[in-house]
């Protein structure tokens, strides 16, 4: 197990380096600079700013300086949040994104798993069609439509929840729900497919023949197998939930990392773009590693494959 993890860590280094390089040159090639603004100011002022933030050096020097700064985790100052570094932004906003992701995942599982089981147990009845059609609707409606509608209904008309912000517990409800519904739909479909496969297999037939009740056959025997694809789906999804929530973060004014990323790109805050991209990439790789390690632990057959 340890060599496997070490090998994966070793592989991560060139990947991160490649990501760093691509991103670095991509943002430098792009039009617009962190120091441009609607009001044009005298050249000597721009030059002073460039000198302070290290933009007066040749590009390659900047490439290596920034790289070294990231290796030492001594991050460069930001231009869109004067006085801070990416470390401040990430440490403040990542927990928010993580919390949102976990709540969303909880909702997704709480809604998706029962719906999937129900659909599989009563295949081709209305108990199957209804949740599956709902699930499909969840997948087909863009988050930026679902979000404002939920805010309108629950926040404005019913006043059960707040419409935006991230201050009290009430503020967690709508963003988590909006984000969670989409994944609930996916999970429901996965569970249904996984369980249908197992329900038609021999050992369930044997269990039924031995007199196991239908409920027991479904919940104990079939679910154990049916939930496996969901487990392997969870890791990357959690990473995706955390990284891909910027639409929800925008609609509900959640101070998470996703929004910072989009704003950093719009503000051309190169340092913040760089750090967030590297952070996300590390996060995805870590999630993949955990999932792979878990699968190896759970399934001995894979160990020697």
């Amino acid at each position: 197990m340890l060599p496997f993890i070490l090998r994966r860590f070793a592989q991560a280094i060139p990947v991160l380096l490649a990501i760093y390089t691509i991103t670095f040159f991509m943002i430098r090639l792009a039009p617009g600079s962190p120091f441009s603004d609607e009001r044009k100011v005298a050249d000597h002022i721009i030059e002073a700013q460039q000198a302070y933030y290290g933009y007066d050096q040749p590009l390659l020097v900047q490439y290596f300086t920034t790289l070294w700064q990231h290796i030492r985790l001594d991050l460069p100052p930001l231009t869109s949040h004067v006085g801070l570094t990416s470390a401040d932004i990430i440490s403040e906003s990542f927990p928010v994104s993580l919390e949102l992701g976990l709540w969303a995942m909880t909702i997704a599982l709480a809604l998706g798993v029962p719906a999937g089981i129900l659909a599989a147990a009563r295949q081709n009845t209305w108990l199957d069609y209804t949740p599956m059609s709902l699930a499909m609707t969840g997948i087909c409606l863009p988050t930026f439509v679902v979000g404002p509608i939920l805010a309108l209904v629950f926040g404005i008309w019913l006043q059960w929840t707040s419409v935006a912000g991230w201050l009290g517990p009430v503020d967690r409800i709508l963003p988590s729900l909006t984000l969670g519904l989409y994944y609930a739909a996916y999970i429901a479909r996965l569970i249904r497919a996984g369980m249908l496969e197992i329900l038609s297999s021999d050992f369930i037939r044997t269990a039924r023949a031995k007199g196991a009740s239908e409920l027991r056959a479904i919940l104990v025997h079939a679910l154990r197998g049916g939930i496996l694809p969901v487990v392997s789906f969870l890791g990357p999804t959690l990473a995706g939930l955390v990284t891909g929530s910027f639409v929800v973060e925008t609609i509900f004014q959640v101070p998470g990392l996703g929004r910072h990323f989009v704003l950093a790109a719009l503000n051309r805050d190169h340092a913040l773009i760089m750090s967030t991209v590297l952070f996300y990439a590390s996060l995805i790789m870590l999630a993949n590693l955990v999932v792979d390690a878990l699968q190896i632990l759970l399934n001995p057959k894979l160990r020697y494959a």
């Binding site: 805010a151 926040g155 404005i156 419409v163 935006a164 925008t250 609609i251």
Partner: peptide
């Protein structure tokens, strides 16, 4: 000072009495 940057969100927050 609440930094709500999405104008539709700000509108809804106002309407929700916040």
């Amino acid at each position: 000072f609440l930094p709500i940057d999405d104008i539709n969100t700000e509108d809804q927050v106002f309407n929700a009495g916040r």
